[in-house]
Design a protein around this nucleic acid. Sequence first.
DNA 1: GACAATTGTTGTCGTCAACAACAATCTTTC
DNA 2: GAAAGATTGTTGTTGACGACAACAATTGTC
Lengths: 168, 168
Amino acid sequence: MTATAARVDSRHTPRKRAGNGAAPRDVADDVGLDALAGHAGYAVRRFQIWIFQDFIKTLGEVDIRPTQYSVLTVIGANPGLSQMAVAKRLGIERARLVHLLDSLEQRKLVKRIKSKEDRRSHALHLTAQGETALAKFKRLAAEHERHVEAKIGRENRAQLLRILAGFT
Amino acid sequence: MTATAARVDSRHTPRKRAGNGAAPRDVADDVGLDALAGHAGYAVRRFQIWIFQDFIKTLGEVDIRPTQYSVLTVIGANPGLSQMAVAKRLGIERARLVHLLDSLEQRKLVKRIKSKEDRRSHALHLTAQGETALAKFKRLAAEHERHVEAKIGRENRAQLLRILAGFT
DNA sequence: GACAATTGTTGTCGTCAACAACAATCTTTC
DNA sequence: GAAAGATTGTTGTTGACGACAACAATTGTC
């Protein structure tokens, strides 16, 4: 007689599964989500939460979050970019990028160099320390990608990247 | 992969705008993102931002955000659930659900009914008003899904749902 | 040279996830 | 049956993040 809270008051509960007489194992296991099953946004949101948590955990030893990683990667691949260019490319506000760069600059990973051509802007570069650090970050990120493969399957991950290639 | 990756090629198409404002397609278009192209998390994040913005915009006339919609849908499909059960099923904190329900209850869409079996918990139900409102929300959400199809293709959307079915 | 636009910066506001603490209420254990 | 422990709803804080607005310095345009 332990199924007090676990048993859903099934007076008005619509029949979702036919004849499933199994005992409820956990509270939310027999809660139907049928209406949400067909929504792409919900699935994508849940997946994105999972993938970010794994990224944060996998890169936890170096204390790098996904947004920081993307900033470092873009700067590493395109040295000398302005803050505006980086923000526009990554789809983040330039106001937000200020704080991100403050943090990364304090950690001696990037440096802002006053541009000669346009004295309003800063040319962004990785420090030497930042380059070696980014190499390590990339190895950990590759490990994270393997976690993704293990989670959804190698072929499915490839299809996902193909489907969403237009958003990068 | 070292510092030689300064690949801001000479693809400078100097299409300078006329004195008119707002020509957002110049600075970042030729910035290489090669390193991020293979990262599933980045593509998923960008896609999730797009899909949420379209959802918020499409359901803007009724002022319903994705999380609110998911809460209403789950309650509508499973009346009498406790807050704990809803939170666990949707993967949101029960602390967060409190504010969400406060808002939805103020709008007369849901009601908390003190449970008789477990006087700590609340049984969640849609109001009559909430049920008719949810029907409208679902029509708008279906319209949003058509936007997704138009964006990534009907077949790709179906594959996406299949790949991410385990996360719902 | 006057005027508009851009860049980096600072600030505020609201959303969201992650915790921590608490009172009220079960549940377990002795 | 009472004490100890766990659960539920609630309040609060913290930090990451997106959106916006305002500002000084600088650049471009007329």
